[in-house]
Design a protein around this nucleic acid. Structure first.
Lengths: 180, 180
DNA sequence: TATTGTTATACTCTATAACTATA
DNA sequence: TATAGTTATAGAGTATAACAATA
């Protein structure tokens, strides 16, 4: 009864695909959050570390964009990482406005732990799906995203945090990312 | 370069499907949030109204479960709805522990507005997708959800809010739902 | 004046724990 | 004691606005 049609409503109504999408995304998100938590991390922390390693963002603006948050929000997360001893911030000698973010040894270790968790998670997630399935799924997801405006393939594939359009406060992202 | 493989990493690595899923889900979520906001609502508000109309939850525990939040969280949202004059809560004469939640006239009107927005959104979202596409997509999404534990088809199709597994605070849902 | 980043503040959504009231 | 619900408190994540420092 929960498959295909909603009944008990004026006229048969197909289960909205957006809802299916969201249920799946939330289930996956929750599981990924748990996997990261088990490895001592959170999604924002993981995304920041990942982007620091993968890209070499010239400044925090780039990093924030890659992570998918505002600059102020990134500062917030960097403060957390700093407090946890995972990064250091030092002024660039050539342009002292720029803070050069560097992973500490503990930061590198945290990155490796989280990367392992992310890789294991992705493997688990792909179970039973062929490459063709994944390609199809990816294409369909791209279409949905395109249908609502965001081109669906914009930005780096590891951009994983929500960027609220409405005023303050907002939903939470979800995420999952590659292990380089 | 952002398609299929991540480069610049030790070994070619397929773009994690979980990440694709999440990007799409967030784009859709954001758009749906906007659509609801334009109709004067939010996702929690919509889900509460929808569940009140669609089901006839016997008590708030049922309603909370349908919406996908804890009872205390539901109270929170009901307070908002109450403050906005969309619902009333009255004690059940037979069992005075039970609060009977009723939509006011303004609540009914809000429901209709949000329903229209949700239906329009779903139509927009499905653009260019055949029924076969939707079936395929739904199945693949179900598989992903199943792979991470949550059976992917549990609960009412309109349960749209996140249920945090980790301590306090937490991610935000996303959502989209049917218009009955 | 423009760029870079931080701080201050606030908001949404969520949760747990403790409480009231009823059964 | 058990059930129904509310209130109090808290926390994560996000945002905007105002600010400082540098160019």
């Amino acid at each position: 009864m929960h498959r295909g049609m909603l009944t008990g409503v004026p006229e048969p109504f197909p289960v909205p695909i957006g809802l299916r999408l969201n249920q799946a995304a939330r289930a996956v998100e929750r599981a990924f959050d748990e996997a990261l938590a088990a490895a001592g991390g959170t999604l924002p922390v993981w995304l920041v570390l990942l982007n620091l390693k993968l890209r070499r963002p010239a400044n925090q603006r780039e990093l924030a964009e890659a992570v998918g948050v505002r600059e102020a929000t990134l500062s917030h997360h960097l403060n957390t990482l700093d407090a946890r001893g995972l990064i250091t911030r030092t002024r660039d000698a050539a342009n002292r406005r720029i803070q050069v973010v560097t992973l500490t040894e503990a930061g590198e270790a945290a990155f490796l732990r989280l990367r392992e968790a992310a890789i294991a998670f992705d493997t688990r997630l792909r179970a039973g799906l062929t490459d063709a399935d994944l390609t199809t799924l990816s294409a369909l997801l791209g279409r949905l995203a395109a249908n609502v405006g965001n081109c669906g393939d914009a930005g780096p594939p590891w951009a994983g945090l929500a960027e609220r359009s409405r005023a303050p406060g907002g939903p939470r992202p979800a995420g999952q990312a590659a292990g380089p």
